[in-house]
Simulated assay, not measured.
Amino acid sequence: MDRMHTRVTEQLGIRYPIIQGGMQWVGLAELASAVSNAGGLGLLTALTQPTPEALREEIARCRGMTDQPFGVNLTILPAIKPPPYAEFVRVIIDSGIKIVETAGNSPKEFIAQFKAAGVTIVHKCTTVRHALSAERNGVDIVSIDGLECAGHPGEDDVGGLVLIPAAVRALKIPVVASGGIADGRGMAAALALGAEGINMGTRFCVTQEAPIHANIKQALVQASERDTALLYRTLKNTARVFRNAIAEEVVGMERRPGGVAFEEIRPLVAGVRGRAALQSGEVNGGIVSAGQCIGLIDDVPSCAELLARMVAECRRELERARGFFG
């Protein structure tokens, strides 16, 4: 069986260094198990589950669908009334999960617990300075997110072509490239820039196993690289999303003289609306996260088909580039 060998595949025990993004409302057992069965690393999204106990059940459900390694994403966000993070951590450890992807705020307060339980920590961040801080705090792998990505790319506006090698140069631990990757060419480029793996969110949304309505998948297939929008720029909490009617409305409100308060746009961007849109297929029903790589996506394969194709294309592109010498 074809395998790739990087520090990421060795540390995570996977065949290919391809990690599925921990996407809210999307990281369910159906998708995570399909990615893991295809040789990558599938991730369940902890906060998609309403309670820690529901996460325990989802982990058990995923175990019934794959015998390969999979992990759990735990995104730590500032909130007036935060989720019970400590309870989610306890469920992850008690359930025997050995790989965790953390994102958002620093996972510093939970690192010792995870380490004591033999958990490998992949921390996602958007700047080299935060990556260095994560390395100092003891994470095992850093996933670095460029401006092209879906969701929150930070406020520094640095694309992957610069951010990936900058992180690789600064860090001793392995770097996973995230944002803007949807095919084997992007994977080859990331490896050439020094990354030892890739993370994909948007590309995995447009697969047969993603728990998203076919209408949404088709809208992303038909979109170009220009069909995303950056929201919350004026609020210093930038997010890249699919450019639908709601996204256009929010951008327009932010462009008003004097800007906009979050309370004014909250009804438009509420998570429950986004979740309903993903399930109903109402393309303009809510906010839909999407990265610029939608311009590179033109089909809805199974995860097995996607990973096999990507690895073959990555190998082909790296060999083609090598042919430029000699």
Rank of each mutant, 00 (worst) to 15 (best):
Q208C: 02
T202R: 03
E305V: 14
A60I: 10
N284Y: 06
A182L: 10
A112K: 14
S133R: 14
F204H: 00
R136N: 03
I212E: 06
L191R: 00
I212V: 13
S106Q: 13
D2I: 15
L307I: 15
E248A: 09
A189T: 14
M310E: 02
I80S: 13
A219G: 12
G258Q: 04
A46M: 03
T202P: 04
L230N: 11
N237A: 15
A112D: 14
S280N: 14
T48M: 13
G179S: 01
A290E: 06
H5P: 01
R7A: 09
A192G: 11
S133I: 12
A308Y: 07
V72E: 08
C314A: 15
E155F: 07
S133A: 14
V269M: 09
S33K: 10
N199D: 10
L12R: 00
Y85P: 04
G201C: 09
A131N: 12
M310S: 02
I212Y: 06
C293M: 09
E263I: 10
G154V: 09
A150W: 00
E135H: 07
G259T: 08
N215C: 09
G22Y: 04
T51E: 07
A277W: 08
F242Y: 15
G159H: 06
A304T: 02
H5V: 12
L74N: 04
I265W: 06
I198G: 01
A166S: 15
V176F: 06
L171K: 09
A239N: 13
A103T: 04
I80K: 15
Q292E: 14
R240H: 01
N137H: 13
G159A: 13
G291M: 08
A214H: 05
A188W: 01
D145M: 04
A167C: 14
V176S: 06
T127F: 07
V89A: 07
A261D: 10
T75A: 15
A188L: 08
A321D: 03
D145L: 06
K98Q: 14
H123D: 00
R243H: 05
P82F: 02
S143N: 05
I164S: 00
T234E: 11
E109Q: 15
V8H: 03
V122Y: 02
L74I: 15
G179Q: 01
D183V: 03
A308G: 15
A214Q: 11
A103N: 08
C62H: 07
G104R: 05
E282I: 10
A270V: 07
Y85T: 08
I93H: 02
T127E: 06
V91G: 11
I76M: 11
E109K: 15
H213M: 07
I181E: 02
R309F: 01
V311C: 04
G184S: 06
I19F: 02
R309N: 02
L161V: 14
L47P: 11
G118E: 11
A308Q: 15
A29F: 07
P17M: 12
K217N: 05
G64I: 04
M253G: 03
P301D: 12
E58D: 12
F88C: 05
F324A: 08
I144S: 01
A188E: 04
